[in-house]
Amino acid sequence: MRIVKLAGITGVLALLSTPLAAQESEYSWQPDRPINIIVPWAAGGSTDQVTRIVAPILEEALGTEVVVVNQPGASGSTGTRAALDAARDGYTWTANAIANNATYSVTGLIEGTSIEDYHIYLHVANAPVVSVNADSEYQDFPALLEAMKSGSVTVATAGVNSSGGMALASIKQQAGDELAGARMITYDGGNPAVIAAASGEAITTTQLAVEQAEMIRAGRLRGLAVLSDAPLEFEGVDPIPPITDFISDFHVAKDYFGVFIPAGAPQEVYDTVDQVWQDHVMDSELLKEYAAKQGAIFDPSYGDGALEKAMPVVIDEACARVERGEAVIDPSEIGIDCSQ
């Protein structure tokens, strides 16, 4: 399996670089060839990071190679479409923030798709952080927000459908003022967007904490606010204040990430992965360590429980598209009610 070494999680990945060990298994599905997980974003970003923690756990349990394939483009829709277009035999999965997979059709990026096209396996929730270059003149979030109203603030994200892009849109929508001075610059993934802000190519980024953690720890970025109703704490960093400290009525829904198996495969595939998730992911020490170090929330689930957890952020994102004029279809067409 190809491993991308990432600063700060290299130690965690090193723990996973053990020989593939097929186990005597009671699972009904025993795959006889490698499984591909398509990550529709560039290497090093939030989805890529956590998928490369989960893949070896699945490898050992299933007794077959699990290959992480990066296929970025079009706000994650290129790789997601490739997974949906692949044979429905259980050997091609995808990984993402669940709100993306659930809303691609709302924005017209993938016609006719919805969350019903997948069996869902969640592992962590992530929170976007508003950060600036360490040398920035903006010392706190109110100062940056004021500049966004009238100045020229470049914001690095992985695209309009990325967590960073949706975070910026949410800030614009909920700040109570039109932030005309905030101008998004898009990159092929969260990691390049964070590097752009750290290098001074962009003034700020709104990508996820897990993508920014090392740059914040190293003093190259300064976290001003986390899109949460509680401070964000992770190893080696002073707590980052919640955005509700500055915008008291800011609405926050947990941004869940996971791996998704397209519907239509043999039932034994889903039955097996359900059990693997229960046996090996639900209490994974490796995932807990990753979350604590990178600023994620360890909160795994699968099946109906996963869908129930994820629906608040799915509804938020789909309906926000309508409010911002970005929707090409009404979310009700894919079973999302925005009237509640």
Rank of each mutant, 00 (worst) to 15 (best):
V4E: 10
G11C: 13
L13Q: 08
L16V: 13
L16S: 08
S17C: 15
A21K: 13
Q23N: 12
Q23A: 15
E26G: 08
E26W: 14
Y27R: 13
W29N: 03
W29K: 03
W29Y: 09
P34T: 05
N36P: 10
P40S: 08
A42D: 06
G44M: 09
G45N: 04
Q49T: 12
R52K: 05
I53V: 11
I53W: 01
I57L: 12
E59S: 05
A61P: 01
G63N: 09
T64E: 08
V66F: 00
V66A: 00
N70G: 09
G73I: 09
G79D: 02
A86D: 07
A86R: 13
R88M: 15
T92H: 05
W93L: 04
W93K: 02
A99L: 11
N100F: 15
A102M: 08
T103F: 04
Y104A: 05
Y104T: 04
V106F: 04
T107V: 12
G108T: 04
L109V: 11
I110F: 12
T113M: 07
S114G: 11
I115C: 14
I120M: 12
P128R: 01
P128V: 04
D135F: 11
D135W: 10
S136F: 05
S136W: 07
Y138P: 01
F141I: 03
S150C: 12
T154D: 11
A156S: 07
S162G: 13
S163K: 03
S163I: 07
G164F: 02
G164Q: 02
G165E: 01
A169P: 01
Q174W: 04
D177P: 14
E178L: 10
A180V: 13
A182Q: 03
R183L: 09
I185G: 07
Y187I: 02
N191W: 14
A197G: 04
A197E: 02
S199K: 15
T204D: 04
V210W: 00
V210H: 00
I216K: 00
R217G: 07
G219H: 06
R220H: 15
L221I: 02
L221H: 00
L224E: 02
V226F: 03
L227H: 03
L227K: 01
S228A: 09
A230M: 12
A230H: 14
E233V: 12
F234W: 08
V237R: 04
I240P: 05
T244N: 12
F246L: 11
S248Y: 14
S248W: 13
A253N: 11
K254A: 15
D255M: 13
V259C: 07
P266Y: 10
Y270S: 14
Q275W: 15
W277E: 01
V281S: 01
L287P: 01
A292G: 14
K293V: 13
A296T: 12
F298L: 15
P300K: 03
P300F: 03
D304P: 10
G305C: 08
A306V: 08
E308F: 12
E308N: 14
K309L: 15
K309A: 11
M311F: 13
P312A: 09
D316T: 12
A318D: 00
V322R: 01
E326W: 05
A327L: 00
P331M: 05
P331C: 04
G335L: 14
I336P: 03
